[in-house]
Design a protein around this nucleic acid. Structure first.
Lengths: 351, 351
DNA sequence: CTGAAAGCGCTTACAG
DNA sequence: CTGAAAGCGCTTACAG
């Protein structure tokens, strides 16, 4: 590796001390304007770039945020990570990304590693597996700032930013009922996962509001992926009556329902309204009756970083914050391509 | 922050020197087995975690890889990043993720920052914008290992791992022709972007092979997103004849074509075969004739890391490598949900 | 097998 | 406004 120029090299060239160089480069006001200018000019000429790891070691601040997610190749998390990265960059931080793969042990390992790397703070969305509380206790003990996003550990004493799953589900199902649907099935998640519980609670609440009974054979709990949706809908096909709408706990589950329909009852495709919590990339093009609850991914990512930085920089006003974001309902009329303005905008940015 | 235990704290407790502790912890063979065991036991008791930034500074190795991508909320990149992260973790490296947003200036800034952070190597997929060659020259000058993936700068002297766009397109279009399609339109990208050029070349080559003429009004260049697909297909609708198949340069462009069809010519939905280069998450559920060229994202991520680590660890056999990966064609018969085995497997891993 | 010395490239806190 | 000293927490290279 070609010799890298250090503070001391600049100092020697200028016959001053490296402290002066260090301060001048960071624009500290106790260095004369002329000296600052001279140092910067020289540094640029010599091709100096500060060694951020040395800086981290001596300043005890890395300007790196650790981000742990259960998965990344998933529209929701990809969008949130994107927003996190964007906001972090804007604020002068880098992000160290780790994926737990829904595995608590791996999640723990990642967090320990990030701790050892001396990140300034942690942004984590916990795996579905029973989390290992001891790491979080460790994080607490060392006063490392941490903000949970989307999936949190309750009562761990950390700030969190989550989505109002119950209300989102409630509004969506309420909307269906107001549109005249009465026989609404729910392909649910599992009870041990918060989003499963909450979305189901919102569903039941909406039925209750309209004095509709919960028809048990149509509420099928079990998971969050395509196969669960597929199997559950096949099961529904074997009941005597057919629903006129299906509320799927996630977008993948909704896809599984479509898959089952296409295979076993294609005639239902155009008549049964599907509602999914969360959206995929192709809503604008989905040809069947399809509704979805949209999650504010960008806002979640941006605000998660803001909350964390406030804690890191000590400007946090109080202890743990719990921010709850509201969803929006995307109806058929709303479906659209990204607007031309947006497209033009992104072109402008790129160009 | 609670006092963190350091090497020296362990050393004092044991009445030995910190060098011995350091070596024992890293299992160096020149420390007696008993001492190693004792040190490790004590370190564990005291809750020691090594300070990786101090280690980086003194060892000149950070065990961090910098990853720069044009975007992340995109199925292709999300999948590749996932694979990169997985492989890096397996090899004991962390990844610092940066998103250029298809913006060359931002790409440059990110790389400079990663350089300053002293990553051990760089994995980059360049933005579509004219790249700023000077940063790459700088990377060369400091002998920083770098591997381009998917989108590279030719002749920059770095290793690269890319996809055989031309051949992938050729095989796919060739397949269409063998299935009896003769009137194949191509919604192309732009000429200044390699994937645009290459995919188009593959398309033309396939037509040539079968002595089919290129019908210019049906080859519409312009971009890579939904709107381009939409506009281009509307334009095609205004030509006298109609194609029996459409080859879209990307999956989003294909979606735009579906959008245009649904709006302006819904009757074509079931009759015009759409072929996209790249796939989305919903292939298994797409109801219309749909074919796609699948990119080996996982292999790309894994191998990119392998190549980079070989360069970092000095085991690279020669100068720049150029790996070209082949695509596979996913036909309607191949469409499927993730297999039950895979689902069970992921459950097992998670459990 | 264990240790004393030097150093990685910075910043902090304190003098002057 | 500039500098001398100390230190961040490790590892490397060399003695013994």
């Amino acid at each position: 590796m070609a010799k890298r120029v250090r503070l001391i090299d600049i100092a020697e060239r200028l016959n001053i001390t490296k402290v002066t160089v260090s301060k001048a480069l960071r624009d500290q006001p106790d260095i004369s304007k002329d000296m600052r200018a001279l140092v910067k000019k020289t540094a640029a000429e010599m091709g100096y770039t500060p060694n951020l790891v040395a800086r981290s070691l001596s300043s005890q601040r890395s300007h790196i945020l650790g981000v742990v997610v259960p998965k990344i190749a998933h529209p929701f998390f990809a969008a949130v990570i994107d927003a996190i990265q964007e906001e972090a960059t804007k604020k002068g931080y880098g992000i160290l990304l780790a994926v737990s793969n829904e595995n608590a042990a791996l999640e723990r390992q990642h967090i320990e590693r990030l701790l050892a790397m001396r990140v300034d703070g942690l942004l984590v969305s916990v795996s579905k597996q029973q989390p290992d509380l001891s790491v979080y206790q460790q994080v607490r003990d060392m006063h490392m700032p941490l903000v949970f996003f989307d999936r949190q550990i309750e009562d761990a004493g950390f700030s969190s930013i989550t989505i109002d799953d119950r209300l989102g589900a409630f509004h969506a199902v309420d909307h269906l009922i107001q549109q005249g649907y009465r026989k609404i099935a729910h392909i649910a998640g599992t009870h041990d996962v918060a989003i499963g519980r909450e979305r189901r609670a919102g569903y039941e609440e909406a039925l209750r509001k309209h004095d509709l009974p919960v028809f048990e054979p149509w509420v099928i709990a079990g998971g969050f992926d395509e196969w669960h949706g597929y199997d559950a809908f096949v099961q529904i096909l074997h009941t005597d009556a057919l629903p006129d709408a299906v509320f799927a706990v996630t977008f993948p589950v909704g896809l599984g329902v479509y898959g089952a329909m296409r295979e076993h009852a294609p005639d239902l495709l155009d008549t049964v309204q599907i509602l999914t919590f969360g959206d995929g990339e192709v809503n604008a093009f989905y040809p069947y009756p399809h509704l979805c609850v949209r999650q504010p991914t960008q806002e979640m990512g941006h605000r998660a970083v803001e909350i964390l930085l406030a804690e890191i920089e000590g400007t946090a006003d109080g202890p743990a914050q719990r921010v709850v974001l509201q969803t929006s309902l995307v109806t058929a009329q709303n479906y659209r391509l990204p607007s031309r303005d947006e497209a033009a905008e992104s072109l402008r940015l790129a160009g």
